[in-house]
């Protein structure tokens, strides 16, 4: 009974403000004559028509595919390089300033550069995402690997957990909280790069389509595209949170127990 009450209250708090905002938008824009801010009803009406037909396959799917491939590439490359650099002190010292420099470059400037090499095709867009999202993962992995606990490391040596087993059972799990934090930053960078690279030069994709709508003054369609991008960002972040909660359950438990909760 109590639980249901609490659940009900939680649901109320979660939905109250969003509902108020949507209702306000709905009625506030209902009789809108402002060309740039069409009524929410017309945007929603457009939404289904615009995205659930041909464009889902022709634009949304290519965008998301490029995003996921680029992101996965950044994760694999970042973790692999990070493990190597994290384990080697001298190599780390040598490369640190160079890596800090790369991280500091605003990733979207890579788009014009990469398009010099690879044209405006899928390859360039995927590489842009890899190169832009790589740095937070790489640098966080280095930090995580470097900070592997000394006692645990000694323990592993005593029990001959060495080589690949050491990587799998000690180094990667120990660094995982940092790696995941880097992956979270990299995810939002990837989305930015996906959109920008399509706005910059493309023949399909979400970013491309939204800019086309804007240029042709298809305002409700443009709004529906913005909403779709927002939903995409939200869903990806939700999926990431699920992944984080699953993969770092031990870490959150450990932290709670250390804080004495």
């Amino acid at each position: 009974m109590n639980g249901i009450l609490r659940g009900g209250r939680g649901l109320f708090f979660a939905l109250a403000l969003p509902v108020v905002l949507v209702v306000a938008w709905w009625f506030g824009s209902a009789n809108s004559t402002n060309f740039f801010f069409p009524s929410l009803s017309s945007i929603l009406e457009t939404f289904g028509r615009t995205w659930f037909a041909e464009r889902m396959r022709a634009d949304v799917l290519p965008s998301v595919t490029r995003l996921l491939i680029g992101y996965a590439g950044a994760v694999v490359l970042g973790v692999a390089l990070g493990v190597v650099l994290g384990a080697n002190r001298t190599l780390r010292r040598i490369t640190e300033p160079v890596l800090e420099f790369f991280r500091a470059i605003p990733p979207p400037v890579l788009i014009p550069v990469l398009f010099l090499f690879a044209g405006i095709g899928n390859t360039a867009k995927v590489i842009v995402i890899v190169l832009g999202a790589l740095w937070p993962i790489l640098l966080n992995t280095v930090e995580g690997v470097r900070a592997v606990d000394e006692v645990l490391s000694d323990t592993s040596r005593c029990y001959r957990v060495t080589g690949w087993a050491r990587l799998r059972h000690l180094v990667l799990p120990a660094a995982s909280p940092q790696i995941v934090a880097g992956m979270r930053q990299a995810l939002s960078i990837s989305i930015i790069l996906m959109v920008i690279s399509e706005m910059f030069a493309s023949s399909n994709g979400l970013g491309f389509t939204i800019i086309q709508f804007q240029r042709s003054f298809a305002i409700p369609e443009m709004w529906s595209g913005i909403i779709l991008l927002g939903l995409l960002g939200f869903v990806l972040s939700l999926l990431f949170q699920l992944f984080e909660r699953r993969s770092l359950r031990w870490y959150q438990g450990l932290r709670r127990s250390q804080r004495g909760e």
């Binding site: 989305i191 959109v195 706005m199 939204i210 800019i211 927002g230 960002g233 972040s237």
Partner: peptide, 16 residues
Amino acid sequence: FLRPVPSVALIPLAVL
């Protein structure tokens, strides 16, 4: 909900 919305989604709106 709003935090993960990529800010670059607002580009066309800003331009308009």
